[in-house]
């Protein structure tokens, strides 16, 4: 559908939030506390922040939980009884104040979970989220959305995108039918679009590399000394993968208590040493440089080719989270010149 523009005043935005909450919607919105911003379930409107640069954790947990229950089972002498998880029970969720990079992150995940076989666990959650985006008016040195084809006011993945205007009111862009439904139900809060455009109210994030060039260079870079040189610091902690909105590698493990058990899908990381180890002890990626290479190649070479999506949205979380200051942006800038 064509994007529709409206104005929502600062005071009306609070009313929209409360209206959504009053209708029984669960809301997940960013809250700043002790200098750290994280998404929280059902905060009060006063707690919600519009001034943060980036939350530490991404939003992938909402569609790809850190631990997902795949099946339940019960074992005893008479045999095994398996119960499927009822995915119709997945609750709808409004994601509020989502930066454009994070909203685009859902598309990257979608490209993994839906590229051939449709993952019902993922899909049932994805269907139930409504994304109310918030353009970025601030950024930091780790942000590089414009280098991966996105921008601080991008609408990709959003149902509605809000942009804070100079007056403190918000421009609302209504992007999808889901977004339109929200606006229709609260039409009294929306006014005619202002003449002020969003472009003047966005953070300045300069493009630092061409991702097409990086992808092209990676095609012949498998044996390049770059990987060893640039991963010597890596301690394989996996923090980058856990905070990444587009990382979707997982493990499948069983957990039991007495006769009852669950089969769980849990976040995993290609950076972990045991990730690819065979039962025989043979490990195709036995050293950290091979695992770092896999991370970059997966996101910038394999995914564009196999999943038709980059595996990176330029949010910079991995660089901020890295305990040894590995900086993905610096590395991608180097890879462009390789």
């Amino acid at each position: 559908m064509e994007i529709e523009k409206k104005l929502i005043k600062k005071a009306s935005l609070e009313k929209l939030f409360e209206k959504l909450q009053a209708k029984g919607n669960k809301i997940f919105a960013p809250v700043s506390k002790d200098g750290k911003t994280e998404f929280q379930y059902n905060p009060s409107y006063a707690e919600v922040t519009y001034d943060h640069i980036q939350t530490t954790q991404s939003l992938k947990n909402t569609v790809f939980p850190k631990i997902e229950n795949l099946i339940r089972f019960k074992t005893d002498r008479s045999g095994v009884e398996v119960t499927e998880v009822d995915l119709t029970q997945v609750q709808s969720l409004v994601l509020w104040g989502v930066h454009p990079c994070d909203a685009a992150g859902f598309n990257a995940l979608k490209s993994i979970f839906m590229w051939d076989y449709k993952d019902e666990y993922f899909n049932s959650r994805l269907q139930k989220i409504a994304v109310i985006g918030l353009s970025c008016h601030k950024s930091d040195d780790n942000c590089f959305c414009t280098s991966v084809g996105l921008n601080p006011g991008g609408t990709q993945g959003c149902d509605i995108l809000l942009t804070k205007l100079s007056s403190g009111d918000f421009l609302a862009e209504i992007i999808t039918e889901k977004g339109k439904a929200i606006v229709t139900e609260a039409s009294e809060l929306f006014e005619t679009a202002p003449s002020e455009t969003k472009e003047g109210n966005l953070a300045q994030v300069n493009q630092q590399f061409s991702h097409e060039k990086v992808t092209k260079n990676l095609a012949g870079a498998f044996e390049h000394p770059f990987w060893v040189e640039n991963s010597l610091r890596c301690i394989g902690c996996g923090a980058c993968a856990f905070v990444c909105p587009a990382c979707a590698c997982f493990d499948i493990q069983d957990e039991t208590k007495g006769k009852n058990g669950k089969r769980l899908r849990c976040w995993d990381s290609c950076g972990f040493g045991l990730f690819t180890i065979h039962t025989s002890g043979h490990n195709p990626r036995e050293v950290q440089s091979q695992r770092w290479r896999q991370r970059i190649l997966h996101k910038f070479s394999y995914m564009p080719e196999r999943n038709e999506s980059l595996g990176c949205i330029g949010c910079g979380r991995c660089s901020r989270a890295c305990p040894v200051d590995m900086n993905i942006l610096e590395q991608l800038v180097s890879l462009e010149k390789l």
Partner: peptide, 9 residues
Amino acid sequence: KCGRCNVGK
């Protein structure tokens, strides 16, 4: 999907 068995792409 799980990201383990790939050899290159």
